[in-house]
């Protein structure tokens, strides 16, 4: 089980209760395509895995039709929390070298499952990538950062890569592999790890209000300029630091606290 595609059976945002409109999200389709390409390149098999009820077999059959060789469904309700989903998946794919996921699921995703899986597998991670290049033994991934910047990552096995939709177009399943996949057996395993119901926010996230001292400046216009940062170039607003990972993480946390995004 060296290459794994983690797929979620999701409903259509416009028809949340209608199975006719359910299936694999574009992001998961991209993940599956990368897994299949990598498998061809490295001469390996692809295992498609999902956590969900029996309806979720649909995405596994689609994956089998496209070229995945094994399919596992961990039987659980669709409402399971992301951390529990990741734990369940990780417990079934121990030893996986490459794990491909969609960046986040369409229905209520926060994109946390790939990160949790990476933590369980002690794997490297490149999450929410907008481009991925497959190399022998590594993947070069591009992530989107604020302000039009890009982060270039090189990850080595074992690694988890989660990709945005439209990063790769899923190949079209052949007619006869589709017929075979329709009758293929799917390993259905019970969830042996706990499955809690996901608690998720139903309102948009809003940073808490904080007190600000009046900006310096004699005229209202001056103060407005300081307040809106209007005249400064974006490069000057940033701060470039070179720090050890732990210190860098602490610096980011401090900045987030200063800006009011985290409670002190």
């Amino acid at each position: 089980m060296s290459i794994v595609a983690c797929l979620k059976w999701v409903s259509h945002p416009g028809e949340p209760h209608d199975e006719r409109f359910s299936g694999m999200s574009p992001a998961d389709q991209s993940a599956l395509e990368f897994a299949l390409r990598q498998a061809e390149q490295l001469g390996r098999d692809v295992t498609a895995i999902t956590v969900g009820p029996s309806g979720a077999d649909k995405v596994l059959r689609d994956a089998l039709a496209c070229g995945a060789t094994h399919a596992i469904r961990i039987d659980a309700p669709t409402t399971a929390a992301g951390a529990d989903v990741a734990t369940a998946i990780a417990s079934h794919i121990a030893g996986a070298e490459w794990v491909w996921c969609g960046d986040y699921s369409l229905d209520r995703g926060a994109g946390s499952v790939p990160a949790f899986i990476a933590a369980h597998l002690l794997a490297e991670q490149a999450l929410g990538v907008i481009a991925a290049e497959l190399h022998d033994g590594s993947v070069h991934a591009t992530r989107r950062l604020d302000g039009g910047r890009r982060e270039l990552l090189e990850v080595h096995a074992p690694a988890v890569v989660s990709v945005e939709g439209a990063t790769a177009r899923l190949r079209r399943a052949g007619l006869h592999s589709l017929r075979t996949a329709n009758n293929a057996s799917i390993d259905v395993v019970p969830a042996t790890t706990p499955m809690h119901r996901a608690e998720f926010m139903v309102r948009p996230y809003r940073p808490r209000a904080r007190e600000l001292a009046a900006p310096p400046g004699d005229s209202p216009l001056d103060r407005l300029r300081v307040l809106t940062d209007a005249a400064t170039s974006s490069a000057a607003r940033g701060e470039k630091v070179t720090l050890a990972p732990a210190d860098a993480a602490e610096r980011i946390m401090r900045a987030l606290r200063d800006w009011g995004y985290l409670t002190p």
Partner: peptide, 9 residues
């Protein structure tokens, strides 16, 4: 003939 690869039935 269908529009799938390997698509003859």
């Amino acid at each position: 003939r269908t529009d799938r690869p390997d698509g003859d039935l």
